[in-house]
Design a protein around this nucleic acid. Sequence first.
DNA 1: CTCGTGACTTACG
DNA 2: ACGTAAGCCACGA
Length: 115
Amino acid sequence: MTTEFAEKIYSQLKKVPKGKVITYKALAQSIGTKAYQAVGTVMKNNPYAPEVPCHRVVATNGTIGGFKGKKSGKAILEKIGMLQKEGVKTENGKIKNFEKVVYTFNSTCCAEERT
DNA sequence: CTCGTGACTTACG
DNA sequence: ACGTAAGCCACGA
């Protein structure tokens, strides 16, 4: 079971196409909340693991955020690896071409996904 | 219900 | 640029 709040996040996050990322800020705002931190909190639950690629979510400044080898869990590190596989390259725990891979619900949708 | 923590962000020093 | 402080909301005990 999940909370409505979480479901909103998951719903939006699932909209993010492959090879792209989204910031907690944009994600939080998209669901109509200012609790950026709460976003990350529900991410931990992530009951929709493959459907909700939490690793695809990054900090507002383009950094990976807490995914790094801090203490959150090495499992997250694995996600980062696969994130790069999808096309989102990273450098020193930060997104490369962040502006190119960043995704927003207000901008063009799946620009690269559509042929 | 109250307290504590958090995968966050913004601002000030 | 880095560190500390305050604000925000949700979840766990």
